[in-house]
Design a protein around this nucleic acid. Structure first.
Lengths: 149, 149
DNA sequence: TTTATATATTTGTCACACTAACTATTGGTA
DNA sequence: TACCAATAGTTAGTGTGACAAATATATAAA
């Protein structure tokens, strides 16, 4: 990449990511989902893993630890998640969904899939592969040390 | 898009956009640039347009008005930007770079181009076209009313 | 055992995004 | 003229993101 024009990828990327989050958040709100987009991501990952520590969960969702602490705080207040003490390690928590959290996830999952489809109109499965390849390449280019995933 | 897997585009997009911003911000910091990534975007657009109102600038950088108000506040504090009263419309400001702002932009521009190159390693000009096409399609799919740009 | 180091999580600070509500001003219209 | 809707910008509240520093606990080394 030598031409100045290519540096616009960062602007396009940021603009589109914000639009995707904004659109989803509006739909979440008009549907009274009672969670934000980021809170949903955390709930979804908890629903797909029986028990997780905050560190494990942070690595799954690619958020840093302070951010995750605060999201978990909110989800606990809303009654969807519980922090249980780790039996061997008193520094750590085991996170799991409450009953209310489980039913929240199962009721929201199809609606959110539907919301997510909107962005992909006029695009093909092949586009998705290209999109994923390019995004992953960018991510790895900038991901100095930890080659996770 | 019917398969559930495709809904991961939102996760990939968000993750990569955050990584791109984080990487740039780290480089900005280690180079003592004295501005954030978003402040740079605003400075750059001001340098490419003689005079802008806040509303015009907000449309250029795709940020909302409260966000732009605060970024301008910070850039004024740092002495890079000035708000001048609009001669005809007392509700509005005319924004322009100070001398300090002009020299800041010209000194940072080449360094930032260099930083931006890193993400595009292993990718081709054709990849850029595809990337841009897909991001723009997503953006337009979600951009209900205002078909700006 | 004591010390040193590493790990898990929290707290504090600053910046940004979005919403809603608010002030001031403008321009059109009854 | 008086009213009213639209526009420019600000302020406040909540959530998120990055980073640094602090706390508590665990583990390894001396």
């Amino acid at each position: 990449m030598t031409q100045e024009q290519y540096s616009k990828y960062s602007f396009l990327l940021d603009r589109t990511a914000r639009k995707v989050k904004q659109y989803a958040q509006q739909q979440f709100k008009s549907g009274d989902f009672d969670v934000t987009v980021d809170q949903w991501l955390v709930l979804k990952n908890l629903s797909e893993n029986e028990v997780l520590s905050q560190t494990e969960l942070a690595n799954l969702v690619f958020k840093d630890h302070p951010t995750l602490t605060r999201i978990i705080d909110l989800l606990c207040k809303k009654g969807y998640v519980e922090r249980m003490p780790h039996p061997q390690d008193r520094r750590s928590f085991q996170l799991h969904l409450t009953e209310s959290g489980v039913s929240k996830v199962s009721s929201l999952r199809p609606e959110i899939l539907h919301i997510r489809e909107k962005a992909w109109e006029n695009l093909s499965p092949h586009d998705f592969d290209e999109f994923k390849r390019i995004l992953d390449t960018i991510y790895q280019n900038l991901n100095g040390e930890s080659l996770d995933q």
